[in-house]
Each structure stands twice: as C-alpha cells, then as structure tokens.
C-alpha cells in the first residue's frame, strides 16, 4: 500500500502550476472577467502542453493518463480559478467517452479533444444548467437514465448568469434520439455525477488553498496597532483552522480519484465544500473591508467555490447519499468498512 503520488506526477503538477501562475494569475483572471471571459491564447497554450488530452487514450493522441494524474491538474485549475473549460474535458468528458472509444465517431471526438479542435460540455439532469454549453462542439447530456452525445447544432442554448462572473452557464433544450444515444447503462449517469463531483471537489481544494494563501500573504503585510495583523493570535488561529480543514479534505479527494467509489466521492465533496466555505468566510474576515470589495481578487475565488458547491450534487445531496450508504444494512463494518475500496 502506498498512498502517495509519484515523482513524475508531482513534477507534472508543478509544471502546470508554474504555467498557470504565469498565464492565469489573479490579474489575468480579473482582466478576463472584465473582457471576453475566455482567453483563446491561453487555451491554445493549454492544448500545446497536451493538457486537453491528459486523460484521452493514447490511441486517440492523448496522454492516456488516469484521474489520479488528473486530480492534481484539476486542483491546479481550481487554484488559479482557470476560466477556460479544461476541467470538463479531462475530468468528465474524456473519462466518460474513453469507454466508448471503439465507436469511430467517439474516437474522432476524443482525438479532437486531445488536439484542441473539439470542446465538450457536460450536464447532468440534477443540474438545471450546463457550463460552457454555448461554446461546445458536443454536449454530453443525461435524460431518463441514459447518456447522450449531442452535437451543438441540435441544442438550443439559453444563457443564464452565474454568481461566478467567469462561469458561463446555460439552459439547454434538446430532443434525444437514437442517433444521440451514447449509453443506456443504468449506472452511466451516476458515473457522470461522480466524475463531475470529483472534478468540483478537486477544484474546490485548489480554490480554498488560494483563498488561504491570499489571506496569509495579506496578514503578513497589513499592519494595525503597529504590527502585522498576522501576529495577532486571533488571525493566526483563524487561518490555521482553515488549513487543517483543507488538509483533511485533501486526502479524501486524492483517495476518491483513485477509487472513484461513490462513497469516497461524496465524502470528498462534503469535506471540500465545508473547507472552501470556511476558507472564503475566513479569508474575507482577515482582509477586513478589503475582503468585501470587487477590487481585491479574493472574491473571484470565493464565487467560483460558491458556484461549484452547487453543481454535481451539492452538500445536501452528497451527505444524504453518504448517509444512505453508511447506514444501509449491508454497509461494511469494522476494519472492512474503513479501508475497503468499495
């Protein structure tokens, strides 16, 4: 047993982190929010780095990596509040489509994702809106227990406004057909929800860490009463408490990426939603009135975390699902229940 990432996985993560620090810093996120909302130039670079094909099978020109590799990258996308829909490609669309790569049309789409020529959006029936639906070439949409792969031209998209100024959401109107059906496996939509939930959790982890980092930086420099406010124990303890919550959310997220077990995903989801909410509340508090402004970057991360907390099953949903599993009559007990993967 070894619950740790490899050197290579961590190195890759660091490369992506450095890239996003240079290309998607808070100032660039702010610029994006004030302008077009998406940066085609940054997207091209993400494609060039091979990131869109991270989880696309090698046969379709991707890197063929797993979600254990992917989770670290998704966390970085969260840390940077990346506006472009990279996460939906690597953590939702490609893993779902990969199971159907023997279909030539699906194989072509996967190759397109890796090459950066095709973008997908994904929407679960639980969520009323789909992120980045307008820009997508294909949409993965659920209806009555079946998953459909729907070309953009067959979908009417009505834009809505998200609390996150950089999130683009829309209601989608479409009619399923035999030609759009991807899978009628009764478990397929649960799998989609799990992938979406994991993606949201991993991003939330990154977002929470950024909020704490921003607040800790501020606490080191902001002076009141002739001292850095970070020297006041009240401020220190606030931030330390949130860091504990983040660390204890991190392990379940990584575990969930490995097992992809619904139980672990729900656990990760609840832990991250709570940690991110605490991070937002605390970071604003540490920033004082500054934290309540649009002019300080913090709110971009807070609003992304807020928006992500509501999709792919919110806290309420995952806690209810988890309690059903934990309290069911055939739930594993004792040591079996602690370490079993299923």
């Amino acid at each position: 047993m070894k619950f740790a990432f490899t050197e290579d996985q961590l190195l890759f993560r660091d490369t992506v982190r450095d890239f996003l620090a240079a290309e998607c810093g808070p100032a660039q996120v702010r610029e994006c929010a004030a302008g077009e909302g998406r940066s085609p130039a940054r997207w091209a670079k993400l494609v060039e780095m091979g990131l869109t094909g991270l989880t696309v099978p090698e046969a379709q020109g991707g890197l063929g990596l797993s979600l254990v590799d992917g989770v670290l990258i998704v966390e970085e996308a969260g840390r940077a509040a990346l506006p472009e829909p990279l996460v939906d490609q690597i953590a939702i669309a490609a893993p779902l489509l990969a199971a159907f790569a023997d279909r030539t049309d699906v194989a072509e789409i996967l190759a397109g994702i890796a090459a950066g020529t095709v973008k997908l959006a994904a929407g679960h029936p639980l969520d009323p809106f789909v992120a980045d639906a307008g820009d997508a070439d294909y949409l993965l949409l659920g209806r009555e227990d079946a998953l459909h792969l729907v070309p953009r031209g067959r979908v009417t998209v009505t834009a809505e406004v998200s609390v996150d100024p950089l999130r683009r959401i829309a209601a989608v109107d479409w009619t399923p057909g035999n030609d759009t059906l991807l899978s009628a496996d009764p478990a397929i939509l649960d799998r989609m929800l799990d992938l979406g939930g994991l993606a949201a959790a991993a991003q939330g982890l990154g977002l929470a860490q950024t909020m704490v980092d921003l607040a800790a930086d501020y606490a080191r420099t902001r002076q009141q009463f002739g001292k850095a406010i970070g020297s006041f124990q009240a401020v220190k303890h606030h931030l330390a408490t949130v860091q504990v919550a983040i660390e204890f959310a991190r392990a379940p997220v990584y575990k969930a990426a490995f097992t992809l077990a619904p139980r672990d995903i729900s656990h990760a989801r609840v832990a991250v939603i709570d940690a991110a909410a605490a991070a937002a509340r605390t970071a604003i508090q540490v920033f004082g009135a500054m934290g309540y402004t649009y002019e300080v970057d913090l709110h971009f991360f807070m609003k992304r975390a807020w928006a992500l907390a509501g999709v792919w099953g919110d806290r309420h949903y995952h806690l209810a699902r988890l309690s059903r599993m934990v309290l069911s009559d055939d739930a594993a007990l004792g040591a079996d229940g602690t370490f079993a993967d299923k």
């Binding site: 809106f129 809505e160 406004v161 998200s162 609390v163 996150d164 807020w306 509501g310």
Partner: peptide
C-alpha cells in the same frame, strides 16, 4: 440549493 448560484438578470448584467 442550486438555485442560489444563478443571478436573476440577463447575461451581461450583475
């Protein structure tokens, strides 16, 4: 719930 994450105005408004 999920309704909380959506603003009521037209796109482009806040």
């Amino acid at each position: 719930g999920p309704e909380a994450d959506v603003f009521p105005g037209e796109p482009g408004t806040y």
